[in-house]
Simulated assay, not measured.
Amino acid sequence: MSAFKWQKSSYSSESLNCIYLAVAPDRSVKLRESDDPEIIVTTTPGKLRALLRGIKDGEFDHLTT
């Protein structure tokens, strides 16, 4: 397992699949999913912010219907 300090949302429970976030020493953001924690996606704070705004604004809703 990696040495990052992973954080899980307070909205997640132990019985749900969860997304974990960590900030690397170079300030990049790391993401992993609880089902396969060895796969880590790296992004920037700005790109993560844009993704979260798009999710909140419904930009990706057409992908789930």
Rank of each mutant, 00 (worst) to 15 (best):
R32K: 09
R49Y: 14
T42G: 01
A50H: 10
L63D: 12
C18Y: 02
S28P: 00
Q7C: 03
D57P: 00
A50C: 11
P25R: 10
R27Y: 06
P37D: 02
V23S: 08
S10Q: 08
T65G: 11
T65C: 09
M1G: 12
M1F: 06
T64Q: 13
I19H: 05
I39F: 06
V41L: 10
E14L: 09
E38C: 13
S15E: 14
L51E: 02
E14S: 05
M1L: 09
E59T: 15
N17S: 13
Y20K: 13
L63E: 08
W6A: 09
D35G: 12
G46T: 11
W6Q: 03
Y11R: 06
E14N: 07
P45Y: 11
K8S: 02
R49E: 14
I40M: 08
R53S: 13
N17M: 04
L21D: 00
G58I: 13
T64Y: 14
D36R: 15
S34W: 06
G58K: 15
K47N: 09
M1D: 08
T42C: 04
Y20V: 01
F4Q: 14
K5T: 07
T43Q: 02
S12P: 09
D57C: 11
E14Q: 08
K47R: 12
A22N: 10
T65M: 08
K5N: 04
N17W: 01
Q7P: 01
K30L: 11
W6V: 09
L16Q: 15
